[in-house]
Amino acid sequence: MVSFAAEPIFRLGFFPVTNTVLDTIIVDVLLIALAVYIKKNIKLVPGFIQNLIEMAIETFYSLTESVAGERASKIFPYLMTFFLFILIANWSGLIPGFGTIGLYEGKERTFVPLLRSATSDINTTFGLAIVSLVATHMLSSTTLGIKEYLGRYFSLNPINLYVGVLEIIGEITKVISLSFRLFGNIFAGEVVLGTVAGLSAFLFPLPFLLLEVIVGLVQALVFSMLTMAFMAILTTPHHEAKEVSAK
């Protein structure tokens, strides 16, 4: 039975190096290698990989521009990094060997996989959600100014103050919903794949694998799009929002 918590493989002092941390390192290496490769080999006439990356970046940038307008350049790096990091982390769990190659530990000889998808660890998804929230509020305060930013949550008007308190609760809920949605979907996917593979290791798991590929893509999109939407909403000045709603 797969445990909710990521299993430590070894320790570096007080820091437990879990199987999800190892996957995080793999995802980091892949992303950095891709970035370095593109930086070194970028050409006016693109090759296959550059074309693929350009297509993704251009699509996401245009999408951000259509939602956030001139604030797109500030929001886009978060959106794209969330998408790439979560997508690769989600799909890495589908690579043969992830969750199946491991060690038997303890007296009960519990199976501990060496590698496990980073997004099937609540520490990763919660961490990403915190970054999303903090970045959203930092962008909001720098774009709107401290006065207008705080005005959203604090007011002398009791009704507005009540709405502000609800907004603060909403922000906390955002973190919980973002992190648990991603964690739940990917963790559940791993459990399903493990169970199905236990029933039959050949052919039978293939449709489920395909389903998990789609789930991985959708969850990466959901997380990044929601972050973009939150950022776009919170960085929109009050008068601009009024104009938009009037239209």
Binding site: V21, I57, P77, T81, N123
Partner: peptide, 29 residues
């Protein structure tokens, strides 16, 4: 399995990746 060290490590890790991708990948593309 929520662990403050792992949580902090994941946050720092993501910020580093964000910085690297911003400087190397997004800017050049």
């Amino acid at each position: 399995g929520l662990n403050p060290y792992l949580l902090a490590a994941q946050i720092v890790n993501f910020l580093i990746i964000l910085y690297i991708l911003k400087k190397l990948l997004y800017k050049s593309v």
